[in-house]
Design a protein around this nucleic acid. Structure first.
Lengths: 199, 199, 199, 199
DNA sequence: TATGAATGAGAGTTCATTCAT
DNA sequence: AATGAATGAACTCTCATTCAT
């Protein structure tokens, strides 16, 4: 049941905010944070320049909000799908599978994620790093450690392996084409990793 | 007719160019291409703001020059070290080892490389992609195909595996700290990959 | 939805635009297109330097807008006064008379016109040439051809004579002093031309 | 020191100077004074940037020198041809005829003349005005006054008529195409003026 | 004399942000 | 809440000029 039965105004505000965020996602993904233009974002969302400042403190505030909302959706999406499985091997495959789905469903958001993670803006990078801790935790504990406990994975360094997997995922996903298609197959990548991990 | 030695001028010109490039490398690595300031780059190199335009056509021209010169040095560095070995397994280890050395010797250049490769600027991205073809070729033909021929690697898809390796290398290298130290050990990464490749 | 009157905004916008144009007219007339400074034009109009770009695309766009608006006013002014008369001789006199009035009322605009028409900027020149076609037509058809039809002018080449008259007008007008006074009398010039044209 | 060596130097200096001037003529005619580029002028003449400053004080000094040298050549050219005749009518025809020849032989110089005379740079304009006094004098005294004395011209105001003639000449000449062709015939223009002047 | 590397004032332009309405 | 006119710092780039060689 809906936790937030709100007044009409709040509803409008929320809708406006969502439209602005959506517009920002497209702009940041296409142009990058620095080049993206606040006025264009507002206009593309159907509002005037100033409107954005009723919902976000600044361009940076907008970016931070966007990072948080994207991360939450992203984490939930992956979590759901991974934890449906109970074996480490299938969870790993699910991870890549879900990851590939994220790319096709949330392509621009993922692009922003990659730009930020590999970009020069340290503050944004830190923010992302923190906000994505749950995903690292998921991989480390609910996949790798689990696999070791289950006796199917070699006793690898879990932090190390988590980092490798995240890097692989992001690195590959970042090369998706404009329709969200990735030229590497999720199964192949999963197999590659499994080959390195399985006893 | 000039009375001074032509070579003297040439040298001054070369030195200035190098100082400007060095300054640009630091700026682009620290701030990213968009935020980096052309005038500050000139100033930081010890020249007036206009000087940079005696050597480079534009900010973008400077960036492109930098990409090309960095790539050439980088490629040569890796090539040299990898091709000293003749076994595929040792070559792979050498690749990561040399890669790790590159990070500590050419940290800012590598940061620029990563920013560009995972950034939003498609034109620069294309440029990088092309200029780094020789490194892809090195991995694909002189390491992976070789290993398969030598009968020590499984018959993996060479393009696919090359892409994975490049992504791993860049992804991990991009997290080097400011002294160029990488928290993942080159041997461990090589082992991870070898585990996935060795028969 | 906006709560203020839409018309109110429109008016502010129109007024600002006019002030910027006026300021530009003075600057371009005084300094010429190349030397005139966009920021100073904004400042002189009482606005910050960026404001001009809310109204005009670029320095050149401002110049083009100015050319068009000036030409329209100028053409209307002359047309009105010339076509009040019905004899070719009186129309010719009126043409110079009105032309002299234009100089005193629109001195800076006329200076810009002359700078442009005799300047090196081919693009602006073309623009002017096109926009002033109606005035050539007025002279050629409503004055010279008319005079020939009315049997009072010799059968001169109408294009040729139109060109001469325009050149005379602009050449002389360009030497107006800073109060818009021309040291040649409009009647005298008209008489000179009439002497060449009357049977 | 032997004198021939001295003169040789002067000769070289003069040649260099002439080449620079020639290059400047082309640049100023094509681009206008403001947009023309000192470095390009030097380069086009086959010299380095700095060389121009061995011969001229500044860009403006170069322009002034150019104005003077052009004017002298121009004046001499016209004077010669006009004063060969002894009747006012033929002198007037000769004036336009020679004027048309000047355009085809000295097209870029004439363009500079026109840009300057109708441009916004008051200082250059003044300079031109003064340097062209002899031509005004030629028209006023050796053509118009003469014609009146000879009883073939009406008793027009000589200053006034001189101004008209100069304006006609320059205005028309300025529309020469890039090969120096003028679309108005010199005889026709002379006839137009004679019609206005002859008794 | 000729050179061309270096200079730095100054130009046009962009755009995040403010704020009165 | 929404608007959009106005702002001005900041940026890239140009180019006349200087000067050591």
């Amino acid at each position: 049941m809906p936790r937030y039965k709100e007044s009409e105004r709040k509803q409008i505000k929320t809708e406006t905010r969502q439209m602005l965020l959506q517009s920002a996602i497209e702009a940041f993904a296409r142009e990058g944070y620095e080049k993206a233009n606040i006025n264009q974002i507002s206009k593309a969302a159907g509002f005037a320049k100033g409107t954005i400042y009723n919902y976000f403190e600044s361009k940076r505030g907008l970016m931070l909000a966007l990072i948080h909302e994207t991360a939450n959706a992203h984490l939930e999406y992956i979590n759901d799908r991974v934890l449906r499985e109970h074996g480490a091997e299938r969870r790993l495959k699910r991870f890549f599978e879900a990851g590939w789905l994220v790319v096709s469903e949330y392509l621009p958001q993922l692009r922003i994620l990659v730009h930020t993670l590999y970009g020069a803006d340290e503050e944004l990078k830190q923010e992302l790093w923190q906000v994505y801790q749950p995903m690292h935790k998921l991989i480390r504990e609910d996949i790798i450690s689990l696999g070791i406990e289950q006796g199917i994975f070699r006793s690898v360094d879990t932090n190390f392996t988590t980092a490798l997997i995240m890097n692989l995922y992001l690195g590959i996903a970042s090369h998706a084409d404009d329709d969200g298609r990735i030229w590497l197959d999720s199964d192949q990548v999963a197999d590659f990793v499994l080959n390195a991990l399985l006893k």
